[in-house]
Write a protein that binds this DNA or RNA. Structure first.
Lengths: 192, 192
DNA sequence: ACCTGAACACCGTTCAAGT
DNA sequence: ACCTGAACACCGTTCAAGT
């Protein structure tokens, strides 16, 4: 890659990070190119689609989240480890308005540059989830894709409500993954 | 209201319903006007903002959901009543891609035409929630705004995943509102 | 190799002019 | 009282022409 091309690439990435953070994942690509001091054609030359730009911008931080999951596998408490990872992931996603929507919808398209990112995060979550399940903290029907979807839903809701309510709602969702004790089920009332 | 104005109003509403259902709540207003056979200026004359158009389009169905909540208050099982209402509401919302986002974000703006709609739905949910709480099925910290947010999150996630997974995730979220039995809490492990 | 920017198609929103 | 449609500002995306 030529030196000037590399410089343009880096500047585009930096401005994309700012724009996506401030205006969400639907931020204007023309504005990103403008602020990076390059032509819109240059942006498209490096990143053929919005998703490609998003993926490049997120690559490092997603790698870090996956590494965090790895580390948390050695945390003494499987439940606490799962909760911490879910919180960190939801917090990261909600930093970019619209990201949860972009991510979850990219799961429908194997060719999306974000598809791999979602797969990696789901796989990382799976190991934490299975460990918590082995400790009796997670019900049988809850899969790794369910947890990934819930984290995305928590990130989405966090974009729209107060931090306090956002934290509470994530906690509710994770509690929803716990096994439902048989004693609270009643024939006359299947519960809420 | 003049007869021709009324006819234009109705046609705009009808085309908006189709467009929002097919293309989501960000559907092109110009296309709606075009399909209704009126000028874009006429659309703006009747509906000054996208939210105003959305509100008018949803008005009846939201009234119906509120009435459903009322009826469910007499259902023999408070838990079942709450679940049914949440399911019906989430299903209705997810029929229009982007609606959950529009609704939840309208809560930040008292002047939004959708604000009243959200308030009504929250109030309707509150009575079902309190009844379920009185039956010991809902934890103390969960408020009506939390349930409204969760229903929106369920509707949002339903837009992006299979029906089957969407149903499962809503069930998880509602289970997350249940009181957590003390015996499953352990000092060494706060759970997921 | 890479970059530029005009070109095309589309949209949201306003408002003077019409009936 | 209501409607029209041109006008303005903005955007996504492509591609011939330049270096």
């Amino acid at each position: 890659m030529r030196a000037d091309a590399r410089r343009n690439y880096e500047r585009l990435l930096a401005e994309a990070e700012v724009a996506f953070r401030e205006r969400g994942t639907e931020a204007s690509l023309e504005e990103i190119a403008r602020r990076a001091g390059v032509s819109i054609g240059t942006l498209y030359g490096h990143f053929p689609t919005r998703q490609a730009l998003l993926e490049a911008m997120l690559h490092e931080s997603i790698d870090r989240l996956v590494a965090t999951a790895e580390e948390l596998l050695t945390h003494p408490s499987p439940g606490e480890a799962l909760t911490r990872w879910a919180r960190a992931t939801a917090a990261h996603m909600s930093a970019y308005r619209g990201l949860a929507t972009s991510l979850l919808s990219s799961l429908k398209d194997e060719n999306s540059p974000l598809y791999r990112a979602c797969q990696q995060m789901t796989a990382a979550g799976q190991r934490l989830l299975d460990r918590a399940r082995a400790a009796g903290l997670v019900r049988a029907e809850a899969g790794a894709d369910d947890m990934f979807a819930l984290i995305n839903a928590a990130a989405w809701v966090r974009e729209q409500v107060s931090d306090e309510q956002g934290n509470r709602l994530l906690a509710f969702m994770l509690d929803g993954l716990r096994p439902v004790p048989a004693k609270t089920r009643r024939p006359a009332d299947p519960g809420p």
